[in-house]
């Protein structure tokens, strides 16, 4: 059994694993009880499992846990809370951006990464940044509007 230390949403964690290749997604959900990061494909195709690793958006359904040792992981639970929502979460509520909601955790993470790199993206830049996330319900335009709105809020334009 091997133990790995890293931080999740700013809190240090230590995880002991029989199989050190166990994906970060399984560790988040089954060891740490953080269910916000969702399983969609296990193939790094759909983006439901998007997290930030040292600030970079990465799909974690196949990412071995050993590879994040010493790194900082941010999940959707680390964005905001009902009491203190992140501007993205508030904008998604304002725009009613979602249907089933299963893809939204990963989309929020991708959007956060985009806005950190590019605080005032165009709609097509947002769309391209979200092309690694699949939404099957067809909430795309609401999601694009929500990200635009959050960007404006974060820039203080609203």
């Amino acid at each position: 059994m091997a133990a790995f230390q890293f931080t999740v949403n700013g809190k240090p964690v230590s995880v002991a694993l029989d199989n050190e290749e166990t994906p970060l997604l399984d560790v988040l959900r089954n060891e740490l009880g953080l269910m916000g990061t969702r399983f969609g494909c296990g193939l790094e195709q759909c983006g439901c499992c998007m997290v930030l690793i040292d600030g970079q958006p990465e799909k974690c359904c196949t990412k071995p846990t050993w590879s994040v040792a010493g790194k900082h992981v941010t999940t959707v639970e680390g964005l905001g809370s009902p009491e203190r929502p992140h501007p993205l979460q508030q904008a998604f509520i304002d725009e009613q951006a979602g249907q089933c909601g299963y893809c939204l955790s990963g989309i929020l993470i991708s959007a956060k990464a985009l806005l950190e790199k590019n605080p005032s993206p165009t709609r097509s830049q947002i769309a391209l940044a979200l092309d690694g996330n699949i939404c099957r319900c067809g909430s795309h335009n609401r999601i694009l509007r929500a990200v635009e709105k959050a960007a404006a809020v974060m820039l203080g334009d609203v």
Binding site: E77, Q96, G98, L104
Partner: peptide, 21 residues
């Protein structure tokens, strides 16, 4: 009317059957 189920999904709460333990 704002969807009553949407906020929990946006805050990553364990609302889906996949999250049941």
């Amino acid at each position: 009317s704002a969807r009553t189920d949407l906020p929990a999904k946006l805050f990553g709460e364990p609302v889906f059957i996949h999250d049941m333990r």
